[in-house]
């Protein structure tokens, strides 16, 4: 693949668009995510999402980010100030996404750099959280998204960054909705066992919103797909 072709770069304001779209999506679905967590978890995820976004607003005001890396740093620091297990794990995931901006300087990262960063973030979350695919965690939407993104970029040199991110979004949403069919083995929902059957894992849903927001930040629409969470 050739990352330097215009169709494979991410737009100049990608960091800002990605983070603000995600903020909107998480605030807009915090009630639903909290409800999922009450049905199959310890019930604190909605509060944690709101706290993280409150921290994000404070960081954005204090730091006035301009580069991609600065936007993602405000996001990861916001999550690291949140309790539970999801806060630190999302924090470390976004920290790896921020690193994708190291080589990019003032520009947005290429889709290849962004894809590598998603994969690095997945590895970090799995190193700390010890979850595998199928354990009913955020990995269940992240892993298929990374796979779909790589496959789309490698299958056809003409595939654009936006097209590849659409493929990743579809895979992430499918992965998240499929968690309703599984019983938790790691993370918050593992404490309730069979009661998690039939309920989408809120961590996987939030992760799907991350991928959806990346797509919406790249295609310029600025709107993530949140209607499927219930």
């Amino acid at each position: 693949m050739n990352d330097q072709t215009p169709s494979r770069t991410l737009p100049a304001g990608f960091g800002r668009a990605f983070v603000l779209t995600l903020r909107e999506a998480l605030v807009g679905s915090a009630d639903e995510l909290g409800d999922l967590d009450r049905r199959a978890g310890d019930g604190d995820f909605g509060t944690n999402v709101r706290t993280a976004m409150k921290h994000l607003d404070r960081n954005l005001e204090a730091d006035e980010p301009s580069r991609y890396r600065e936007w993602l740093t405000a996001l990861y620091m916001a999550w690291l100030g949140v309790g539970g297990t999801s806060g630190p794990l999302f924090g470390m995931f976004f920290r790896d996404l921020a690193k994708a901006g190291e080589e990019a300087g003032t520009a947005a990262p290429t889709i290849a750099q962004f894809t590598d960063a998603l994969a690095a973030g997945q590895a970090t979350v799995q190193r700390y959280g010890e979850a595998k695919v199928g354990d009913k965690t955020m990995i269940d939407s992240l892993d298929p998204a990374v796979t779909a993104l790589r496959a789309a970029l490698e299958a056809d040199a003409e595939t654009t960054a936006v097209e590849a991110l659409f493929a990743a979004e579809d895979a992430a949403v499918a992965g998240a909705t499929a968690t309703a069919q599984t019983i938790a083995r790691r993370g918050r929902a593992s404490y309730v066992g069979d009661a998690s059957q039939g309920v989408i894992d809120p961590g996987s849903a939030a992760m799907a919103l991350v991928i959806s927001s990346a797509r919406a930040g790249a295609d310029g629409s600025g709107v993530a797909n949140i209607g499927w969470i219930a």
């Binding site: 100030g81 309790g83 806060g87 630190p88």
Partner: peptide, 14 residues
């Protein structure tokens, strides 16, 4: 110090 019986956050520990 975290809240009662809850870990301090990563940012606090940092």
């Amino acid at each position: 110090a975290g809240a009662v019986f809850a870990s301090p956050t990563a940012l606090q520990v940092l």
